[in-house]
Design a protein around this nucleic acid. Sequence first.
RNA 1: GCCGGAGUGGCGGAAUGGUAUACGCGCGCGACUCAAAAUCGCGUCUCGCAAGGGAUGGGAGUUCGAGUCUCCCCUCCGGCACCA
Length: 800
Amino acid sequence: MKYDHTQIEKKWQKHWAEQKAFRADNASPKEKMYILDMFPYPSGAGLHVGHVEGYTATDVYSRFKRAQGYNVLHPMGWDSFGLPAENYAIKTGVPPQKTTDDAIATFRTQIQSLGLSYDWEREIGAHTPEYYAWTQWFFLFLYKNGLAEKRLAKVNWCPNDQTVLANEQTVSESGEKGVCVRCGAKVVQKDLEQWFFKITDFADALVDDLDQVDWPESTKINQRNWIGRSEGAEIVFIVVGSSEKIKIFTTRPDTLFGATYMVLAPEHALVQTLQNQIQNWDEVAAYVAAAANKTDLDRQTEGKEKTGVELKGIKAINPANKEEIPVFIADYVLGGYGTGAIMAVPAHDERDFAFAQKFNISTKAVIASDTDLYTGLGTLQNSAQFDGLHSDEAKKQITEFVGGKLTKTYKLRDWLVSRQRYWGAPIPVVYDPQGAAHPVPEEHLPWLLPTDVEFRPTGTSPLGQSKELLERTERIFGKGWKPEIDTMDTFVCSSWYYFRFGDPRNTKAFASQESIAKWQPVDLYMGGAEHTVLHLMYARFITKALERHGLVPFSEPFKKLRHQGTILAEDGSKMSKSKGNVINPDEVVAMFGADTLRLYEMFMGPLEANKPWSTNNIVGVRRFLERVWFLQTKVSDVKTEPQTESLLQQTIQKVTEDLEALKMNTAISALMILSNHLSELAQVPKSTYATLVQLLAPLAPHIAEELWEHVGTGSPRENWPVFDPSKIVVGHVSIAVQVNGKVRGVLDLAPDTPQNDALAAAREVPGVAKWLEGGREVKAVYVPGKIISFSVEPNGSQNA
RNA sequence: GCCGGAGUGGCGGAAUGGUAUACGCGCGCGACUCAAAAUCGCGUCUCGCAAGGGAUGGGAGUUCGAGUCUCCCCUCCGGCACCA
């Protein structure tokens, strides 16, 4: 009987769908397990083998957990708003709605052909009004609680196309930075009124709560670095001859006596305030204007070459030693970090040192050191009564001495959610005739995305063209009222979707409290490591905001997180369309079958590692499945020999432990060892074979179900086997005998052999005895069941 | 520059401080065949006739024993990058 993967896979996919085999049951008393994949952007290119890896891993785990008796929630949906569909529409005129629905249909078909056990009754799409109504509800929720507000902010602007550009659109196809991806014009910065979510309110919790979750350490570190909490002091400097003060943030208040100048960010408000006292105003104003037009990319490409202008006529007083010091503006000081102003200590800070060299500013070493520039901590000097103190103590004492305060600051900025784009959830805000913002009342949600727009860059947000949206606004709110015409960052859609899967059709709430209590938080979350810093941060923020207002009873949405690695091309390079080395999963499924593809991707290596694809290696797992398939012809009611039973029990243990730890590659290896053993038998005991099939079922579910029909009862999706240690044969174990760290012999011993007997036997082993003869035994170590180790010193006669 | 991760056969990789190279690919030889494919069996780190020796990026250390732990260095991959 041939192994016809196509026929078998179709049969069981149909069967599972008809049986609703993977429905997550809201009413089940069984323990819940919520296993989630990061929902994909449904791109026109279709499913990638990289998707398959992550989805297969969670599928294996879901099937494993169901068999162990858990009530598993394993859903799939679409992160379906976003730029590619809109760009495609600009190019071709095909509306994003159509492109997106087509792409989703393709993705769904592809995913279903892999036999992934999703509960399709819970499918959601971020671009559907039923979903984005609640994305908009989240906006209103944050707005009402003071966590959303409008501010001026810079955007990338293409003066040629008259359009706003996302950061990733400011790199040309040839890699040139700071230019429009479409026309190549130089990108400039432009101020726009935009909506922000106040994620910085939660900065401390976002750092501290990382201790509660089981995430890869590197991902936690990325999150901490992104938030960038640093501890230091705020200290006030007085401007000479003025009532103005300059507040600075420093992590090194111990070096305050060494501050020989100050720097303000070009956009610092005080620059404008002090205009009348600044003698070289024209020069200063020109520098400020130039800095305002610089993109972040400009700053990067310009490297670390320092620029700046002294504010002539302005001096500040160092509060520690009352010296008058000059004040500069320079773009190496960032307006958005700390207080936007620094004290510069050129003797102990690299950037200040470089700047002082260029502008010929005096330096003063206040930490003892042999070098002109020393950035470490140390013993104070030139610091009056603080001389001799160590930095650690001086930080606090000097801060108190000058009336400053110890404080913390963060790199994390508030989340800018306004997008001057079409294909996103409209921001549910309207403006009265005076221009004041008002939230759209919840009863009007979903606040629909209009369709009467043209897809071409026009210099304004596409929704600004919609007559329907304007008429709707005036009809509901009154004459002269105007709609907000920006849409929300698609990260908003993905910051709450995991709640929706628990209660996907709810029209009264984003999810009922019962569904939250039943299913949340996510027990296992799987997705790529790249590009997830922001998503994870935003999802955590939303959860913390909900918790603060009593809407969820926990503060972290994802208890356990794992990343699948990247699948590379055969030569180890990245797969890319332009190189033409992309593997299409559909072709692999057609040729080898979904079970083989799944098994191969799980067998490639550790889940989180980056691994090259190898079409050669696929035949290995295919052969394994063929071997298991062929074994059914040898099944009979013979008694299981102890050796076979022992191996079976070890396999049950190994596979169970490995699947729990998501080490699919070694679980498969254990199954191969068992099937190789069974292949050597003339007749294969039915119960042993059935157990092999069941252990294989989470990994290669179609073939397992087909084989199970002949050898099992019930379903292979239930009653996961439990290993029985008493059936593992422990009669004797082969243990190594080492002399001076080298293996000289092997000995078969029962693990409970007493030490004296074991050592005596070991000394008699032919390969060992001769090494002990000529020397003096110094030490003998016996680790039962593991190893015997002798240490020998050569005697005098041998040395001679 | 800073922060992570990783270096093991020809290749993907395995190994609670305890016989390094499991499992798979590839390759070689053999069986079956008129022949080939498929399948099955045997072999496959390296030097050596052997006894033995040498190998987990390089160098030191801890230990009876190190791929695994500690320190220094090299290479590759990923992230951040003037954050005071």
